[in-house]
Write a protein that binds this DNA or RNA. Structure first.
Lengths: 349, 349
DNA sequence: TTGTAAGCGTTATCAT
DNA sequence: ATGATAACGCTTACAA
């Protein structure tokens, strides 16, 4: 068997199909796009030629002529953690259903990130930007270029669409619940200035204190979003000795995992000596040593809605900004000090 | 302020830059690609024009002329679960460093998947295909078209590159460890026929039995990869009453989570009445009620190596297939029946 | 060193 | 109903 050469392998062009079918390229284009009417006999000849040559139109040629990429992008700060992957999954799911490819880009706080995002914008018909990726000036620049944008979990800027989840109310409910358990020394672990989400959770934390006539015992113990970050912040909070917190409100479940680990290592029992709560309701939350009291947010839906809004912008050209806020739900288990329920499960469906 | 029209917004073309700088488009191209020599004064004029017009070359035009996409794709069966997201993260990281964009596609066992993959192939310079996505005939078709391919966690086919992790040896070590705890009725939960990885883990399971002179007490309890799948399979395994297994070897950590949940709901204590092990070492594994004995595999590295192999194929045109097998590591915690260690942590770094 | 012009593979507008 | 042909925006021989 003779090896295929590079040239043989190249997909045939519309010209070769046209020649084989004895028609012009315009007719081939019409046929394979199933657009406009083509006389049945002609259509047959062309279809046969397409079949025989295994013709597949070039995406590049097509996009260049047509002016659209049939692709959208999503920019995230970091893919570690269930939150980002769930959002991206929802985004991909909806986008695929719309017939668009998905390009992903992680910025990882690199300085190059801005250029990478600008570059990505040239490859897509629209972009989703998560928080912690690029700042508002970049968002403005993209909008100036006419790139449809949806912002995720960050304040809307310059009339861009945005999708976020409800934070204040749930945070307040969560902290009020904790105070109801008798806690007076609660510590917030997370960086309120680092992201809008955490900022709002911190506000809810403060609001709950106010309502209870309590003064916050500590300022926020600032840290990143990973388990290791939470672990380190927890050690900082726990060395306070006798004045240490009796409850920790972590900005997300991974941080809570770090706090739980730190407490364990310090010989502090959970939740009797230290209550801990998280945010996100990751799949493992119910299986932890201290089943985690946390706030569930519809992570898949965030991605889905973002894709839907982008689709709308792209297809209708809508320019009036839309802002969606998705609901969240307090999930009480036992890490807050509640008695462990017998089971959440039941029989398999 | 007057609203920008669509036309105003359009990025300027190389022609406009050329006109403004008073040169030909060839010179503009030379300048912005920093290729070939251009007289300093000319270069200056062109650079100023580029700057003033905020010119950005069109990716489509560039790709069409140059013949490459500067993008690679990755096809996964499902993004749920830490495994896929970690692999994708590693892939994106390396790919970004190579200056390539990443397109993702989830097949979700849809019939349309084949077309979607074929379509994706027209947008990229190379493709990574995970197991459970498309079958070998599609792989062959793609290779026939000259698309560089790397297969993940599946047997190499038609001379494509592949990246996998070691399964048999670790599975065998794991099961031997369990048998060392005195177990004789071990159940394997997962689908050996569903993926190469699980197939090999099952083989290791059998090999360990053989070495111990033990006959497997059960055939595999077949199920998918999600927690809910594991939960259902566990109920099937546990209703065996007095003859139920004393240990469960789950094909991954999520399945193990489901098994753990089912056992809890059935009032069976872990690990005293039922030992459970997983695979992957997800971040929450050490924080579970029964800290999970599992097998750690370098998920990020799988993605990184895949991107590296693809890069090599694309840039060097190498065609001799390469197969990489990454090492795995048994992580013993207490869900197998070992005494829980004081801590795995220590002080923060 | 710089310019001319021929691709690259489509789509889409006119004619016919 | 079909065919010419001009975009689309770039890269790259080849000329000058």
């Amino acid at each position: 068997m003779k090896a295929l050469t590079r040239a043989d392998r190249r997909s045939p062009t519309i010209y070769e199909v046209a020649k084989r079918a004895g028609v012009s390229i315009a007719t081939v284009s019409r046929v394979h796009r199933r657009a406009e009417r083509v006389a049945p006999p002609t259509r047959d000849r062309v279809e046969r030629a397409i079949e025989e040559l295994a013709y597949r139109p070039s995406r590049l040629g097509r996009s260049l002529a047509h002016g659209s990429h049939d692709a959208i992008g999503i920019v995230f700060p970091d893919l570690s953690g269930p939150y980002y992957s769930a959002v991206i999954l929802g985004y991909e799911e909806t986008s695929a259903a719309q017939g668009r490819s998905v390009l992903i880009l992680g910025t990882h706080r690199r300085p190059r990130a801005v250029d990478q995002v600008l570059d990505l914008a040239d490859r897509v018909d629209g972009l989703v930007l998560m928080s912690q990726t690029v700042d508002d000036t970049v968002v403005d620049e993209l909008r100036r270029r006419g790139v449809p944008i949806v912002l995720l979990a960050r304040p809307p800027v310059g009339g861009a669409d945005s999708v976020a989840t409800e934070n204040r109310r749930s945070a307040r409910a969560l902290v009020t619940h904790l105070i109801g358990h008798g806690h007076e020394r609660l510590a917030f672990v997370g960086d309120p200035a680092g992201s809008a989400d955490v900022g709002e959770r911190w506000e809810g934390f403060l609001a709950a204190h106010r309502s209870a006539g309590l003064a916050p015992a500590f300022g926020p113990f600032t840290c990143g979003f990973r388990e290791e970050d939470g672990r380190e912040a927890a050690f900082a909070a726990l060395i306070a000795g006798a004045h240490r917190p009796t409850a920790v409100v972590a900005a997300n479940d991974e941080i809570a995992l770090g706090v739980l680990g730190a407490a364990r290592d310090a010989g502090i029992e959970t939740p009797s000596e230290l209550a801990v709560t998280g945010w996100d309701d990751i799949p493992a939350a119910r299986h932890l040593m201290s089943p985690l009291t946390t706030v569930r947010q519809p992570m898949l839906d965030i991605g889905r809605r973002a894709a839907a809004l982008l689709h709308e912008q792209i297809t209708t050209g809508r320019s009036e900004p839309r802002r969606e806020v998705l609901p969240t739900e307090l999930v009480v288990r036992s890490s807050c000090g509640c008695i462990a329920p017998k089971s959440e499960g039941g029989v398999p469906r």
